[in-house]
Nucleic acid binder design. Structure first.
Length: 615
RNA sequence: GGCUCCAUCGUCUAUCGGUUAGGACGCGACCCUUUCAAGGUCGAGAGACGGGUUCGAUUCCCGUUGGAGCUACCA
């Protein structure tokens, strides 16, 4: 068994926080020579990511775009009430309203009216009653494997879990499933932390690294071996591969045949004595396995379709399904909310919970996010990492809002919501079963909405570093001119969907030398001499103003246009080019105001000079 | 292939069996207007198909079709 620990020797990212379990290592010979999770490597924040990135302190300002009628729950419940006896039992176990809301809320979404007959011949139907959770405080977790960046689908799963925890005053845990040594990287782990931190999805308790719990997984596997729930399989993987290939060649599905591992007492003793390596397989019982999914209602699998799966490899390392169950038991998770690509793992895991004598948590399988072609979202579809959107100028709250609405809805027409609103409105009954397509257009619209509604001071805090990075100003400078900066932001944010666009459009307010866009000149300054005259007159009119105020400016310039018998546009547009070099900008009087009197007048004069200079 | 999940405008969605099937994004038109946005008004745009159950199905049931996921000593 020495090789069991070899893999644990790698530099541990480990910050082990999961409560130690009382389960003893099966036998002395199995005991670990040293503690696998021992070496702390404080490379990563032990909890919650960079403190500076924490948010969530804001008061709950609610942005509701339409009247928010009360949720549709009542009616839905009525329909659900017509379910099966199974459902009624489920409902019957729901605590009376007024007790812990976390227990009274999760409820079955949709239940087929008649019981689905799964295996008519088998009577031993074991049903998982999901809502009988004894947990006084819900505990949910997000358990990504660090094999890439934080994917938007993962971020949404994390969000739903986080929302659930916040809503019902529970705990949101983070577990890094790093037992795949080949693919797990520290960079990926960091990317997950960074992504969650950016989104503000802070977690409770310390991060658990699955790799640090291997000893427990190992012990659990052996415990199952002792109780007879699992058995040793000495079949070499290569043999299985061959068998599988043969079956597939014949167009059949391969299923491990238990008789392959039926050894006589003496055979077993001999193999053990010879030190032959073996995997541990779970002995899937007869019957069928089902649960009431918070999203899908009842889901059932005939056990005959589940093969005796490996829970511990022949090198002593745990396989996913065991590791997850073992860890979720240790973390006392009450609700497992994850992507619906895990639906087919669930029966195996339920079987494991039972065999381990543990309480089975509730399950909620949220739909996947697809690309525009209807396939699982991947690199082919462009940006799929939350970091990509962060760098495109997306606001975290917009990202969160958008993600929340992919696969969940409030039940009314509410769309734009703050994080606090999201928490207040979140309900597992609003979760959908259908996969959603990631629509970046709507994401951008959503970002524009948040950009427009964010308290201006918050936006200023957020934007200042971006201006500094663009070389437009320093944060200190912007802080010193806070009022002015906020005014500029007010002008720009309404015409931007991305923070990057704000920066891109801010040039005229920060630079001293305006560059004239060729198209703008060609279009608005066609007649150089006449334009120069108008601009000169404009300059004089503005310079004569007693106060530098938009109303006065407008009055003066409209008067000028009237005197000259031209439209206002014929004055404003050339002026816009003189001030910004561009054909589009915020309202011209706002530009004048925020560029400032001196700079504005100077720019107009410069334009006159430019137009009159012999090109 | 097997198992499982899913199915309302192009997209995200509302609908307690009775609605002119509502809203949002996107698209088009118009209004506002000094440009661009934002905003406002209007418009085009959906119940996959076939059977049941019912006085009445988008809604409940079954099937078909289509799509997706899983099918490892990956996670």
């Amino acid at each position: 068994m020495i090789h069991v620990w070899r893999i644990l020797g790698r530099p541990a990212l480990a910050i082990r926080a999961s409560p130690t379990r009382e389960t003893a290592v099966t036998s002395a010979s199995n005991a670990a020579p040293d503690c696998p999770g021992g070496a702390p490597a404080a490379t990563f924040p032990p909890r919650c990511g960079p403190a500076g990135l924490r948010r969530r302190a804001r008061s709950s300002s609610c942005w509701i775009s339409r009247a928010s009628s009360d949720r549709r729950g009542v009616g839905r419940d009525g329909r659900e009430a017509e379910g099966t006896g199974l459902l009624n039992r489920h409902r019957g176990s729901t605590p009376i309203a007024g007790s812990n809301p976390a227990l009274s809320v999760p409820r079955v979404r949709r239940i087929p009216a008649g019981p689905r007959v799964i295996s008519p011949g088998i009577s031993r139907a074991s049903v998982v009653m999901t809502s009988a959770s004894p947990a006084s405080r819900p505990r949910v977790r997000f358990a990504p494997s660090p094999t890439g960046f934080l994917h938007v689908g993962g971020a949404r799963t994390a969000l739903f879990n986080w929302l659930y925890a916040k809503k019902y005053d529970g705990d949101f845990l983070l577990r890094i499933e790093d037992t795949d040594r080949q693919r797990s990287t520290e960079d990926s782990t960091r990317a997950i932390f960074d992504g969650l931190a950016w989104l503000g999805l802070t977690w409770d308790e310390e991060v658990v690294y699955q790799g640090a719990n291997v000893a427990q997984h190992y012990a659990d596997a052996h415990r199952l071996l002792e109780t007879g729930a699992a058995y040793r399989d000495f079949t070499p993987p290569s043999v299985i591969e061959t068998l599988r290939a043969e079956a597939e060649a014949k167009g059949e599905g391969f299923r491990f045949d238990r008789s392959l591992a039926a050894y006589s007492e003496s055979e077993l003793a001999a193999k053990l004595a010879a030190g032959e390596p073996y995997a541990i397989r779970f002995r899937v019982p007869e019957g069928h396995t089902e649960w009431i999914d918070l999203v899908h209602g009842r889901i059932a699998f005939p056990n005959k379709d589940i093969e005796d799966f490996v829970i511990l490899r022949s090198d002593g390392t745990p396989v996913y399904n065991l590791a997850v169950v073992s860890d979720d038991i240790a973390a006392r998770v009450t609700l497992v909310m994850r992507g619906d690509d895990h639906i087919s793992n669930t029966p195996k895991q339920i079987l494991l919970y039972r065999a381990l004598g543990a309480h089975v948590p509730e399950f909620a399988h949220v739909p996947m996010i697809h690309g525009t072609d209807g396939k699982k979202l991947s690199k082919r579809h462009g940006a799929t990492a939350v970091g990509d959107y962060q760098h495109q100028g997306m606001l975290p709250q917009a990202m969160l809002n958008f993600l929340a609405l992919l696969g969940w809805s409030t039940g009314d027409d509410t769309e734009v919501m703050t994080l606090d609103e999201l928490v207040a409105r979140f309900d597992t009954r609003g979760l959908h079963a259908k996969a959603a397509i990631f629509d970046t257009k709507k994401l951008e619209w959503m970002n524009g909405q948040h950009l427009a509604r964010l308290p201006i001071a918050e936006l200023a805090t957020l934007m200042a570093p971006l201006f500094e990075r663009a070389g437009l100003a320093t944060v200190a400078d912007l802080t010193a001119r806070h009022e002015w900066f906020c005014g500029v932001l007010e002008l720009l944010r309404i015409r931007a969907r991305l923070t990057d666009e704000i920066v891109a459009q801010a040039g005229p307010f920060f630079t001293d030398a305006v560059e004239y866009d060729a198209d703008a000149v060609a279009k608005q300054w066609r007649d150089a001499a006449a334009t120069a005259d108008v601009l000169e007159a404009t300059h004089d009119a503005l310079a004569a103003l007693a106060t530098w105020e938009p109303a006065a400016m407008e009055e003066a310039l409209r008067q000028l246009a009237e005197q000259r018998g031209i439209s206002g546009g014929k004055v404003f547009q050339p002026l816009r080019v003189a001030l910004t070099g561009l054909t589009v900008s915020p309202g011209i009087f706002d530009v004048l105001l925020y560029v400032g009197r001196e700079r504005s007048l100077a720019r107009i004069l410069a334009a006159v000079g430019y137009l009159r200079s012999p090109a």
